[in-house]
Computed example of a mutant assay.
Amino acid sequence: MKKTLRIGHIDLSFHAASAALVCTVFEKYGWQVEMTASPHEEMFKRYGKGEVDMLVSAWLPASHDVYLAPYQDNTVKLTVLYHPYCIWGVPDYVPVSDVSSVEDLLRPDVLLKMEKRILGINPGAGISRFSRTMIEEYQLADSGYYFENGSESACYSTFEQAVSEQRWLVIPLWHPQFLHHRYTIRALEEPKGLLGGQDEATLIASKSITETFEPQLLAELQALSPGNTVISELDYLICRKNKTPGQAAEIWHQHHYQE
């Protein structure tokens, strides 16, 4: 009888890509994997209730530490899959001489060109929390800027449409993410340090389930660290090439083991 593992991931495409890579490792060792997704805070609550055995992934310490803290004592950190960080970015056709930092958004000449709505994703995301603070701390609202939560697809398609029309806009984003695989997005300097710095995307699991892992399986999990560029590529395959997370992971594995 196959051992069963319940993997939970945050309900965003690049988290699904990471989870698919983890899933392939377990399937290699004969495990049956049940995969589910939920928004950020909800997924951590489900993990804390024992509804999932493993969570892909916790961005620590800045973005998700507040969600993981209540369950820290029963958690094993298995590996760092990649090193995410949040940005406020602009398309590369926006001249760096005009806009190089968040503070430049308040320049009179920039105010004439830059769109005032800064569209993000769901409210529980770290970048959403950080962005709301940015609006306040840089006093951007006084000049008409505002942050708005939106769907993942709306955030990305709004950026792509703006690029196609060469419009100036700010996108609250992060690495890794599929837009970086296709576009050059310049991160704005952010002197107040409100975007959380670089996190570690950590594969976490309950202590009880890790005690059932075979030594070879555990070693392979601990060695799994695809990095930002790979996750951005997988995310691109999912979001713009219509691959399932499993198909994207399989494509990566084929290339990886051929090299």
Rank of each mutant, 00 (worst) to 15 (best):
R117Y: 10
S128G: 00
I10P: 06
I10A: 08
V52D: 08
S38D: 14
E42L: 09
P226V: 04
A125R: 07
K116F: 02
E136M: 02
V66W: 11
L111K: 10
Y93F: 12
L237H: 04
Q258W: 02
V22R: 00
Y183Q: 08
A69R: 12
T212E: 14
D11H: 13
A162R: 08
L237E: 02
S18L: 15
D65Y: 12
P70T: 05
Y71Q: 12
V90D: 03
T79G: 00
Q32E: 15
E152M: 06
V163Y: 09
K116A: 05
I209V: 15
Y146A: 10
W88K: 03
G150N: 02
G126P: 05
G150Y: 00
A141R: 09
D235H: 08
A248N: 06
F26M: 08
Y156L: 02
E250N: 08
N122W: 09
H40T: 12
Q166K: 14
T229P: 04
D73E: 10
V56F: 01
E214K: 15
Q247K: 11
E41F: 11
G30M: 05
H9D: 08
S131H: 08
R186W: 04
P172R: 09
L68P: 00
P84D: 15
S157E: 11
L169Y: 02
L119S: 04
G150K: 03
S208L: 10
A58C: 01
L169K: 02
E103T: 07
M134Q: 02
R132A: 13
E34K: 14
V76E: 15
V110C: 08
L105D: 01
E200M: 09
A16P: 07
H83E: 09
A20D: 08
G197C: 06
Y146L: 13
E189L: 12
F147N: 02
H64K: 04
L12G: 11
V90Y: 03
H253Y: 12
A219P: 03
L224G: 00
A125Y: 10
P191L: 04
T244Y: 03
E165Q: 12
K28N: 14
L194Y: 00
V170R: 00
V230I: 11
G8T: 03
